[in-house]
Design a protein around this nucleic acid. Structure first.
Length: 372
DNA sequence: AAATGCGACAACCGCATTATC
DNA sequence: CGATAATGCGGTTGTCGCATT
């Protein structure tokens, strides 16, 4: 037996809301609030609507301070970065964008951002079956490692390719997108098969997805994200020895790095290229260059603004904590921290709230650490 | 000018979680 | 402590308007 429906579907009106209905609902809530009972609300004000529908209408449309219209580039970057970090947790992402609703962001992602990423595949740069002059060092590395089948990647890559054939197109699309996003993550912070933290994959429900997820997880080993600018060299060393992960102290102020919309470790350019070239990336469906393009998409403007790679590989934006701290990332530490936090989407600037006595880390901001 | 396709957005649906009894 | 109700959330669908043929 499934649960009882929340309302009588025969008598409830569906479809778009009329201005009159909007006015009724808004007037009532403005005056009385929701009363903590959405189910009873429509009867009180004489609306033939389901309580859930009223709630949705209020939250997504009628609520004050809702922003409609185009997303700014900064908002796009935040959405992309958080999607990389936490997947389709739209309510959490929305909590970081005051005035935006989860529904808005979800729609924007599905209709624009995702296509921007999936559709940004420039034929001149990929799917050529070999290297060419336009390939970046990173692409070249990927091609080389794929061709040579280095280490466990080869095995897993073959498994991925096998599972690829049996996936539905929608599942495949999702996996490809996730791989691109995850690939960026790997490129920024992941040395080959290093680290112990399990990767954070967005939810994949179907059995076939599960197969693919298992396959992919085997060679995505996200590295640790740390509160870089607050970490001294000694602290970093201590953490490295105790956790087995790679932390690095990062010079430069948070303000400097956040100017561009992302925290960016102020490392040297040589550090960046060497790190990127060291990274490995599984390839499914001829995915060479995915990382490049998403990287370009996310960071080209930032890099241009600082005159190239001098700013180092950008990190992710911060999730605001009530104490003024912030957290970002997708590693085990982050997911642990997330699990120990309540997030409270509100009409204003929402916040992540560490629970009392929780295993929270006093994070200021994060940068990616790199393996040697 | 009509038909068709497509993108954007609003709304719905069902499941998971939380609160209450 | 279990059952039920309410709420929150993410995935999906429906509808409308614009662009293209």
């Amino acid at each position: 037996m499934g649960r009882a429906p929340c309302c009588d579907k025969a008598t409830v009106k569906k479809g778009p809301w009329s201005p009159e209905e909007d006015a009724k609902l808004k007037a009532y809530i403005d005056e009385n609030g929701t009363g903590g009972n959405w189910i009873a609300l429509p009867q009180k004000i004489g609306l033939k609507r389901c309580g859930k529908s009223c709630r949705l209408r209020w939250l997504n449309y009628l609520r004050p301070n809702i922003k409609h219209g185009d997303f700014t580039e900064e908002e796009e970057h935040i959405i992309c970065s958080l999607y990389i970090s936490i997947g389709s947790r739209w309510s959490i992402i929305a909590a970081q964008l005051p005035g935006r609703t989860d529904n808005d962001i979800k729609n924007y992602w599905n209709t624009k951002l995702k296509k921007k990423l999936l559709g940004k595949r420039a034929p001149s740069r990929r799917m050529r079956g070999g290297q060419d002059a336009s390939m970046t060092p990173y692409s070249s590395y990927l091609a080389a490692t794929t061709a040579s089948g280095s280490g466990g990647n080869n095995v897993n890559g073959a498994a991925a390719a096998t599972s690829h054939a049996s996936l539905s197109s929608s599942a495949l699309e999702r996996i490809q997108l996730h791989m691109r996003l995850q690939g960026i993550y790997s490129a920024f912070g992941c040395g080959a098969m290093a680290g112990n933290a399990p990767p954070q994959w967005p939810k994949l429900e179907s059995p076939t997805d599960a197969v693919a997820t298992t396959t992919l997880s085997a060679y995505h080993q996200p590295q640790s994200l740390v509160a870089g600018h607050t970490l001294s060299a000694a602290e970093a060393e201590q953490l490295n020895s105790s956790s087995g992960a790679t932390y690095m102290p990062v010079p430069g102020s948070f303000e400097e790095r956040s100017k561009l919309g992302f925290c960016s470790p102020a490392g040297e350019a040589s550090d960046v290229s060497s790190t990127v070239e060291m990274s490995s990336e599984p390839l499914v469906g001829g995915g060479l260059g995915y990382v490049d393009e998403l990287y370009d998409f996310l960071y080209s403007k930032q890099l241009a603004a600082v005159g190239g790679f001098q700013g180092g590989v950008p990190s992710l934006p911060e999730l605001q904590c009530p104490d003024g701290g912030a957290v970002v990332g997708a590693d085990e530490r982050f997911s642990t921290w997330m699990a120990s936090c309540d997030y409270v989407p509100t009409t204003g600037a929402s916040q992540l709230q560490p629970q009392q006595g929780s295993n929270s880390i006093n994070l200021q901001d994060f940068v990616l650490g790199y393996d040697q």
